[in-house]
Amino acid sequence: MLPVTLPVFLEGAVFGILALKTGLNSAEAFGMSALVTAGSAQYVSLSLWSNPPHAGTIIFATLMINLRYVLMGAALRPWLDRKDSDARTYAALFFVGDENWALSLNEWTNGKADVLFLFGSGVALFIAWSGGTLAGSLAGEGWIDLRKSGLDFAFIAVFTALLAGTWSTARFVFASALSAAIALLVSRWIPGNWYILAGGLSGLAFGAKDE
Protein backbone atom coordinates (compact mmCIF):
# COMPACT_ATOMS: atom_id res chain seq x y z
CA MET A 1 0.00 0.00 0.00
CA LEU A 2 2.98 2.34 0.49
CA PRO A 3 3.31 3.31 -3.20
CA VAL A 4 -0.32 4.43 -3.11
CA THR A 5 -0.47 5.91 0.41
CA LEU A 6 2.68 8.03 0.09
CA PRO A 7 1.41 10.06 -2.90
CA VAL A 8 -1.98 10.37 -1.17
CA PHE A 9 -0.29 11.65 2.02
CA LEU A 10 1.51 14.31 -0.04
CA GLU A 11 -1.63 15.14 -1.95
CA GLY A 12 -3.37 15.58 1.40
CA ALA A 13 -0.56 17.88 2.54
CA VAL A 14 -1.01 20.01 -0.58
CA PHE A 15 -4.74 20.13 0.14
CA GLY A 16 -4.04 21.26 3.71
CA ILE A 17 -1.83 24.08 2.49
CA LEU A 18 -4.41 25.22 -0.09
CA ALA A 19 -7.20 25.03 2.51
CA LEU A 20 -5.24 27.44 4.75
CA LYS A 21 -4.83 29.82 1.81
CA THR A 22 -8.59 29.60 1.20
CA GLY A 23 -9.35 30.71 4.75
CA LEU A 24 -10.08 27.45 6.55
CA ASN A 25 -8.21 26.74 9.74
CA SER A 26 -6.26 23.52 10.43
CA ALA A 27 -9.10 21.92 12.38
CA GLU A 28 -11.61 22.60 9.59
CA ALA A 29 -9.23 21.33 6.89
CA PHE A 30 -8.53 18.16 8.89
CA GLY A 31 -12.22 17.75 9.71
CA MET A 32 -13.16 17.95 6.05
CA SER A 33 -10.55 15.37 5.02
CA ALA A 34 -11.58 13.01 7.83
CA LEU A 35 -15.34 13.28 7.23
CA VAL A 36 -15.53 13.70 3.44
CA THR A 37 -12.36 11.86 2.33
CA ALA A 38 -12.84 12.63 -1.35
CA GLY A 39 -9.84 14.43 -2.84
CA SER A 40 -11.16 15.84 -6.10
CA ALA A 41 -14.43 17.03 -4.53
CA GLN A 42 -12.51 18.72 -1.71
CA TYR A 43 -10.19 20.51 -4.12
CA VAL A 44 -13.17 21.76 -6.10
CA SER A 45 -14.91 22.89 -2.90
CA LEU A 46 -11.93 25.13 -2.13
CA SER A 47 -12.32 26.83 -5.51
CA LEU A 48 -15.97 27.57 -4.57
CA TRP A 49 -15.26 28.63 -0.97
CA SER A 50 -16.06 32.23 -0.04
CA ASN A 51 -16.09 33.87 3.37
CA PRO A 52 -18.61 32.84 4.62
CA PRO A 53 -19.13 29.91 2.21
CA HIS A 54 -22.35 29.28 0.28
CA ALA A 55 -22.99 25.81 1.70
CA GLY A 56 -25.67 24.83 -0.85
CA THR A 57 -23.43 25.45 -3.86
CA ILE A 58 -20.52 23.59 -2.31
CA ILE A 59 -22.65 20.61 -1.27
CA PHE A 60 -24.24 20.37 -4.73
CA ALA A 61 -20.85 20.48 -6.47
CA THR A 62 -19.61 17.77 -4.10
CA LEU A 63 -22.59 15.59 -5.00
CA MET A 64 -21.98 16.00 -8.75
CA ILE A 65 -18.29 15.19 -8.51
CA ASN A 66 -18.90 12.15 -6.35
CA LEU A 67 -21.67 10.68 -8.53
CA ARG A 68 -19.02 8.35 -9.89
CA TYR A 69 -19.07 6.60 -6.49
CA VAL A 70 -22.64 5.47 -7.25
CA LEU A 71 -21.37 3.67 -10.34
CA MET A 72 -18.34 2.30 -8.50
CA GLY A 73 -20.48 1.09 -5.59
CA ALA A 74 -22.78 -0.76 -7.99
CA ALA A 75 -19.73 -2.42 -9.56
CA LEU A 76 -18.74 -3.70 -6.09
CA ARG A 77 -22.02 -5.57 -5.61
CA PRO A 78 -21.07 -8.85 -7.34
CA TRP A 79 -17.90 -9.04 -5.22
CA LEU A 80 -19.27 -7.87 -1.89
CA ASP A 81 -22.19 -10.28 -2.03
CA ARG A 82 -23.55 -9.50 1.41
CA LYS A 83 -26.85 -8.79 3.06
CA ASP A 84 -27.87 -5.14 3.27
CA SER A 85 -28.11 -5.56 7.03
CA ASP A 86 -24.36 -6.19 7.21
CA ALA A 87 -23.09 -3.09 9.03
CA ARG A 88 -19.46 -3.98 8.26
CA THR A 89 -20.05 -3.66 4.52
CA TYR A 90 -21.65 -0.24 4.96
CA ALA A 91 -18.81 0.82 7.21
CA ALA A 92 -16.28 -0.32 4.60
CA LEU A 93 -18.15 1.64 1.91
CA PHE A 94 -17.36 4.87 3.80
CA PHE A 95 -13.74 4.32 2.78
CA VAL A 96 -14.39 3.78 -0.95
CA GLY A 97 -12.09 5.95 -3.05
CA ASP A 98 -10.77 5.76 -6.60
CA GLU A 99 -7.55 4.05 -5.61
CA ASN A 100 -8.71 1.38 -3.14
CA TRP A 101 -11.80 0.64 -5.22
CA ALA A 102 -9.57 -0.16 -8.20
CA LEU A 103 -7.05 -2.06 -6.04
CA SER A 104 -9.88 -4.11 -4.51
CA LEU A 105 -11.35 -5.06 -7.89
CA ASN A 106 -7.84 -5.98 -9.06
CA GLU A 107 -7.44 -8.18 -5.98
CA TRP A 108 -10.87 -9.76 -6.33
CA THR A 109 -10.54 -10.63 -10.02
CA ASN A 110 -7.49 -12.62 -8.86
CA GLY A 111 -9.86 -14.65 -6.68
CA LYS A 112 -9.54 -12.97 -3.30
CA ALA A 113 -13.00 -11.51 -2.76
CA ASP A 114 -13.13 -10.07 0.72
CA VAL A 115 -14.64 -6.93 2.18
CA LEU A 116 -11.61 -6.70 4.46
CA PHE A 117 -9.31 -5.73 1.58
CA LEU A 118 -11.57 -2.81 0.65
CA PHE A 119 -11.78 -1.81 4.33
CA GLY A 120 -8.05 -2.17 5.08
CA SER A 121 -6.79 -0.35 2.00
CA GLY A 122 -9.49 2.29 2.54
CA VAL A 123 -8.40 2.90 6.13
CA ALA A 124 -4.75 3.18 5.03
CA LEU A 125 -5.68 5.79 2.43
CA PHE A 126 -7.98 7.54 4.92
CA ILE A 127 -5.11 7.88 7.40
CA ALA A 128 -2.73 9.06 4.66
CA TRP A 129 -5.18 11.63 3.29
CA SER A 130 -6.40 13.10 6.59
CA GLY A 131 -2.95 12.84 8.19
CA GLY A 132 -1.43 14.56 5.16
CA THR A 133 -4.02 17.32 5.39
CA LEU A 134 -3.24 17.88 9.06
CA ALA A 135 0.52 17.90 8.40
CA GLY A 136 0.17 20.28 5.45
CA SER A 137 -2.14 22.68 7.25
CA LEU A 138 0.18 22.77 10.27
CA ALA A 139 3.42 23.01 8.26
CA GLY A 140 2.35 25.78 5.90
CA GLU A 141 3.82 26.38 2.47
CA GLY A 142 7.00 25.63 0.59
CA TRP A 143 8.40 22.47 2.15
CA ILE A 144 8.33 20.12 -0.83
CA ASP A 145 8.71 20.47 -4.58
CA LEU A 146 6.07 18.12 -6.02
CA ARG A 147 7.29 18.55 -9.59
CA LYS A 148 10.99 17.99 -8.97
CA SER A 149 10.36 14.81 -6.99
CA GLY A 150 8.07 13.47 -9.73
CA LEU A 151 5.32 12.98 -7.16
CA ASP A 152 2.87 15.03 -9.16
CA PHE A 153 3.21 12.33 -11.85
CA ALA A 154 2.70 9.54 -9.29
CA PHE A 155 -0.98 10.59 -9.12
CA ILE A 156 -1.29 9.78 -12.84
CA ALA A 157 0.93 6.68 -12.71
CA VAL A 158 -1.30 5.07 -10.07
CA PHE A 159 -4.23 5.20 -12.47
CA THR A 160 -2.38 4.24 -15.69
CA ALA A 161 -0.93 1.17 -13.93
CA LEU A 162 -4.30 0.16 -12.48
CA LEU A 163 -5.91 0.71 -15.88
CA ALA A 164 -3.36 -1.47 -17.71
CA GLY A 165 -3.91 -4.06 -14.98
CA THR A 166 -7.55 -4.48 -16.07
CA TRP A 167 -6.61 -5.37 -19.65
CA SER A 168 -7.02 -9.15 -19.52
CA THR A 169 -8.55 -9.28 -23.02
CA ALA A 170 -8.49 -6.92 -26.02
CA ARG A 171 -12.11 -6.03 -25.31
CA PHE A 172 -11.07 -4.27 -22.09
CA VAL A 173 -8.59 -2.20 -24.09
CA PHE A 174 -11.32 -1.19 -26.55
CA ALA A 175 -13.69 -0.29 -23.69
CA SER A 176 -10.91 1.84 -22.12
CA ALA A 177 -10.18 3.59 -25.42
CA LEU A 178 -13.85 4.40 -25.99
CA SER A 179 -14.24 5.72 -22.44
CA ALA A 180 -11.05 7.81 -22.72
CA ALA A 181 -12.27 9.37 -25.99
CA ILE A 182 -15.66 10.18 -24.46
CA ALA A 183 -14.04 11.58 -21.31
CA LEU A 184 -11.78 13.85 -23.38
CA LEU A 185 -14.71 15.18 -25.40
CA VAL A 186 -16.96 15.71 -22.37
CA SER A 187 -14.21 17.33 -20.28
CA ARG A 188 -13.56 19.77 -23.10
CA TRP A 189 -17.18 20.87 -23.53
CA ILE A 190 -18.88 20.36 -20.16
CA PRO A 191 -17.43 21.95 -17.01
CA GLY A 192 -17.07 19.84 -13.87
CA ASN A 193 -16.38 16.14 -13.43
CA TRP A 194 -19.17 14.79 -15.66
CA TYR A 195 -16.56 13.26 -17.95
CA ILE A 196 -15.81 10.54 -15.37
CA LEU A 197 -19.48 9.57 -15.23
CA ALA A 198 -19.88 9.75 -19.03
CA GLY A 199 -16.82 7.58 -19.65
CA GLY A 200 -17.77 5.12 -16.94
CA LEU A 201 -21.29 4.69 -18.30
CA SER A 202 -19.87 3.90 -21.75
CA GLY A 203 -18.48 0.73 -20.14
CA LEU A 204 -22.07 -0.47 -19.71
CA ALA A 205 -22.48 -0.49 -23.51
CA PHE A 206 -19.56 -2.89 -23.82
CA GLY A 207 -21.04 -5.18 -21.17
CA ALA A 208 -24.40 -5.22 -22.96
CA LYS A 209 -22.88 -6.61 -26.16
CA ASP A 210 -20.99 -9.24 -24.20
CA GLU A 211 -24.02 -11.34 -23.30
Partner: peptide, 25 residues
Protein backbone atom coordinates in the same frame (compact mmCIF):
# COMPACT_ATOMS: atom_id res chain seq x y z
CA UNK B 1 -27.78 -10.59 -7.98
CA UNK B 2 -28.27 -12.01 -11.46
CA UNK B 3 -29.68 -8.81 -12.96
CA UNK B 4 -28.39 -7.89 -16.39
CA UNK B 5 -27.15 -4.53 -15.06
CA UNK B 6 -24.72 -6.35 -12.79
CA UNK B 7 -23.36 -8.42 -15.67
CA UNK B 8 -22.95 -5.24 -17.68
CA UNK B 9 -20.75 -3.83 -14.91
CA UNK B 10 -17.82 -5.93 -16.13
CA UNK B 11 -16.30 -3.14 -18.22
CA UNK B 12 -17.24 -0.24 -15.92
CA UNK B 13 -14.09 -0.34 -13.76
CA UNK B 14 -11.69 -0.01 -16.68
CA UNK B 15 -13.97 2.61 -18.25
CA UNK B 16 -14.00 4.71 -15.04
CA UNK B 17 -10.22 4.44 -14.71
CA UNK B 18 -9.73 5.41 -18.37
CA UNK B 19 -12.08 8.37 -17.94
CA UNK B 20 -10.28 9.58 -14.79
CA UNK B 21 -6.84 9.42 -16.37
CA UNK B 22 -7.52 10.49 -19.99
CA UNK B 23 -7.67 14.27 -19.39
CA UNK B 24 -4.59 14.03 -17.13
CA UNK B 25 -2.73 12.16 -19.89
Amino acid sequence: QSGSLIRRMKYVPCAVLAAIVAPLM
